[in-house]
Write a protein that binds this DNA or RNA. Sequence first.
DNA 1: CAGGATCCTGTAGGATACTG
DNA 2: CAGTATCCTACAGGATCCTG
Lengths: 118, 118
Amino acid sequence: MLRNQQEELRALQDTIYVVGSKWRLPIINSICNGNKRFREIERSIPGITTRMLSRELKEMELNKLVKRTVYADSPVLVEYTSTGYCKSLGPVIAAMIKWGKQHKKKILEKRNAEETSE
Amino acid sequence: MLRNQQEELRALQDTIYVVGSKWRLPIINSICNGNKRFREIERSIPGITTRMLSRELKEMELNKLVKRTVYADSPVLVEYTSTGYCKSLGPVIAAMIKWGKQHKKKILEKRNAEETSE
DNA sequence: CAGGATCCTGTAGGATACTG
DNA sequence: CAGTATCCTACAGGATCCTG
């Protein structure tokens, strides 16, 4: 019973360890949405810098979260595609998007309530 | 269409903003599991320091993620309980626990495969 | 286009000790 | 028990410029 909770806690922390950076999940989401090129991914995530995107992609490639393919024509073409492993994070992302939307609604309602009461 | 993706990205980032720290989700999970007292929560999350737990709980109280109740007998008794808002993160946590378990299995399989091939 | 190289800063988070 | 107070630092992440 408690055994089980400890196990769940560790599973939770493992996941946090893998996806717990500011940009990791947004990048995965972007690639899962079909963005493939570096600049394309970059533009799809306002605020990210080339440095962070580069770093994240490199680490994600090592961890088999994305596949990097180079088509050595010139100009050089590079494509990042999601692996099955990456796609398996879909439910996590979906849950977070859903919560984020609810959250926003809640914030807006609260703001309205405050305005009308003042 | 793209409009929609931008909206989902923002929802995702909002959620990350709220739960994206090393301890936030483990704490929520602990409280949702019924832990109420400070030391109880602390003990349920190996590695966390009193300082971090204290800071997180304080901020979570401000954000209405937990309710803090003081029973002013002596010795003083304090209880933290989850709000509905807090509980609404259940699906996010569940998805992450599930992924973490799969992830562990994957790591173990990989390790075994490497051992047998060497 | 796809990044690498540098420089810089805040702050998340750790360690330790103390209090009512 | 339920925290607060200090001190400390590694590193995530930003800004900017550069290259093949």
